[in-house]
Amino acid sequence: MIPSHEPHIVPGTERGLMVVVVGPSGAGKDTLMALAARHFQGRPDVHFVRRVITRHGDAGGEHHLAVSPQGFASMEQAGSFSVWWEAHGLKYGIPSEVSVSLAAGNLVIANGSRSALHRFQAVFPRLKVVNVTARAEVLATRLEARGRETHEDIMARLARGPLTVRGDYDVVDLDNSDSLEEGERRIVEVLNGFLNELV
């Protein structure tokens, strides 16, 4: 359930589009978002959200605002998040300021989670989902390279974890099995398509 004090956007006032990028471990979601952010750097109508996470600031991965669990709880109680969720022992928050950018008619892109899409849908009337995937053998190779799991554990996880998005969402599937250059081309193409909807 979304707490009642979380800010909702009033229907009819949201001119922009909220884009939530999701995908399984190894699909390269964070990398593609970083490449897309570099490509659109300097465009005032494209905003990449800096998430608030209860994770150390130098833990690697995306550029986020690191807070303590207590700090996150205080921000949540103060209504500082449009959406927040918990996964893998961490809490993630989308700052409520995104509503200003959406009201201005901008494209707002956030790193999300498939398990939290219902929360985004409840708050953002105009929601797009980009589901970053890759072929199973590519995911396995990338996950093995991290050295965090055994080959058997990885294959078992891939076997039980569907790569599709379940639910009534407007989804674009993006296969990121190939080169970084091809992945960047694909996500830029998708985001440009969304921008065309705002014209």
Rank of each mutant, 00 (worst) to 15 (best):
V98F: 00
V199T: 14
H56T: 07
D30L: 01
D153C: 13
E76D: 12
V10H: 13
S115P: 06
Q121Y: 09
V138R: 01
L191Y: 03
A116W: 11
L195W: 03
T31A: 12
G23I: 02
S68C: 10
E182P: 05
L143H: 01
K128D: 09
D173K: 03
G79F: 08
H151T: 12
G167P: 01
L180E: 13
P3K: 05
M33W: 10
D58R: 09
A87S: 13
S74L: 14
E189P: 02
F124S: 01
I94P: 07
I53H: 02
G23W: 01
G57F: 00
L174Q: 07
I2P: 12
L158G: 06
E189T: 15
A145E: 13
D170V: 04
P162C: 01
V130R: 04
I9A: 15
I109R: 04
N131D: 05
V165K: 00
L107C: 01
Q70N: 12
Q121M: 10
M1L: 15
A159F: 08
V21Y: 05
D58A: 12
L107G: 00
Y92T: 03
W84N: 15
E184N: 14
L191A: 02
H118V: 14
R148Q: 12
D58V: 10
N192E: 12
A136C: 11
D173R: 04
L163A: 14
A110T: 08
D170N: 13
F120A: 09
E152A: 13
R55H: 00
E197S: 10
G147P: 01
Q41M: 07
G16A: 08
A104L: 12
F120Q: 08
E97D: 15
H8W: 11
P95Q: 05
S80Q: 11
R185N: 14
A145K: 11
T150D: 06
V22F: 03
V188P: 03
A156E: 13
V188N: 05
I94T: 12
M33P: 07
R166E: 14
G71P: 04
S96F: 08
L180S: 10
L127F: 02
G93L: 07
S179C: 03
L127P: 00
Y92F: 15
R114C: 05
M155E: 11
S177M: 01
G57M: 01
I53M: 04
H151L: 15
G12R: 03
F48N: 07
S177Y: 02
G93Y: 06
T31G: 08
G12H: 04
G71V: 02
V52C: 11
V20M: 05
H118R: 15
D153I: 11
D178M: 13
G28I: 00
F194A: 07
E189G: 12
G71T: 05
I2C: 14
I94Y: 15
V10R: 13
K29Q: 03
F120L: 08
H8K: 14
V67I: 08
A66L: 03
P69A: 04
I9Y: 08
D153H: 12
G71M: 02
L198H: 00
V10W: 10
L174Y: 07
G60V: 02
V98H: 00
E182Y: 07
P162R: 00
F72T: 06
V138S: 04
V171G: 05
S80Y: 11
E14F: 07
G193Q: 10
L139V: 01
G23T: 02
A122D: 15
G161E: 13
G12K: 02
